[in-house]
């Protein structure tokens, strides 16, 4: 995994897209890993009859973990998430190919010297925007900087 530093980022940059074919296993693994036992995330009959959806669908906490993976694949391991704002619009089902895409909205060092990047990320399936997420992530400002070393008042996401 390579490590991104702040000087390598500019407003308007696109993150490398991530495309993933969702199966029932994807949905169920993610739901159980996030301790979400609700039946619409593993029981198709329940999802169809009680939720009126065509199948089981991905739960929100697991989607959050996918957004994290998408962003830190790009930043490298010293990238440290500061903030995420989600809007859920539509569901992701087995058989869908989910595509994560992101664009840099802002990048620069804060008053405290921390290197911040704001990114708009979307999860789409075909032309359906399923979830949008505004992500604020800290990256090193130089090769010897590490946002994870910030604690207390030095960490202000």
């Amino acid at each position: 995994m390579t490590q991104l530093t702040l000087d390598q980022v500019a407003v308007g940059d696109a993150l490398p897209e991530l495309s993933y074919d969702v199966t029932a296993t994807t949905v169920i693994l993610g739901a159980l890993a996030s301790r979400d036992w609700r039946p619409m995330h593993h029981d198709r009959d329940f999802a169809q009859v009680r939720n009126g959806t065509r199948d089981i669908f991905m739960n929100t906490p697991n989607q959050a973990a996918w957004f994290e993976r998408f962003v830190t694949d790009w930043t490298g391991p010293r990238g440290r998430l500061g903030r995420m704002k989600f809007r859920m619009r539509d569901s992701v089902f087995p058989g869908d190919t989910m595509v994560f895409a992101g664009t840099v909205k802002a990048a620069g060092a804060g008053d405290d010297g921390c290197g911040w990047i704001d990114i708009d990320v979307t999860l789409t399936v075909d032309d359906r925007v399923c979830t949008t997420c505004e992500v604020r992530v800290a990256v090193p400002t130089s090769d010897d900087d590490n946002p994870w070393a910030r604690h207390g008042d030095d960490w202000r996401p």
Binding site: M1, G30, A33, A65, P77, R78, L81
Partner: peptide, 30 residues
């Protein structure tokens, strides 16, 4: 969680990397 999302971030898999970057193992923030 890392397996379910195919997240290869070494801070979750490699204790030496975790020691160097995050002062030991951590959970994914999300």
């Amino acid at each position: 969680t890392c397996a379910a999302t195919e997240n290869a971030n070494p801070i979750f898999w490699d204790d030496a990397v975790a020691a160097e970057i995050t002062d030991g193992p951590i959970a994914p923030p999300t």
